[in-house]
């Protein structure tokens, strides 16, 4: 598994970088499901070696801290952490 897809209403590309163990990541994913948008997600902790490094490089492009969850919307904007209002606003 690398990227998982969740079907929903298309609002442009929505990519969630997450950890399978993290509470705020779970909340963020739950919110995306609740909003019913089409999105992709990746559990970076489940990747290994080079694959994980590549994923981290990608995360750090959007979020130099490399923290989770990092949500990238339409390849333009990133929202770091479970910021519910900001996420709702960006996906209206």
């Amino acid at each position: 598994m690398v990227i998982e897809h969740v079907n929903g209403e298309k609002k442009g590309k929505v990519m969630l970088y997450a950890l399978s163990t993290c509470g705020w990541c779970a909340k963020t994913k739950g919110l995306l499901r609740e909003l019913g948008v089409d999105f992709d997600y990746m559990y970076v902790d489940l990747l290994e070696g080079q694959e994980q490094d590549n994923a981290m490089n990608e995360v750090e492009k959007w979020n130099p801290n490399g923290s989770f969850p990092t949500l990238v919307i339409r390849d333009k904007k990133s929202i770091i952490g479970f910021r519910e209002e900001e996420i709702r606003e960006a996906l209206k």
């Binding site: 950890l19 399978s20 163990t21 993290c22 509470g23 490399g66």
Partner: peptide, 27 residues
Amino acid sequence: DFTKNLVRGLLKNEHRYGYSACPCRLA
């Protein structure tokens, strides 16, 4: 529920890494 989910993450990390790394950070 939220807390138990984090505890689950701690245990998962303990099993896979051998130490209980923070569930919200990449070990």
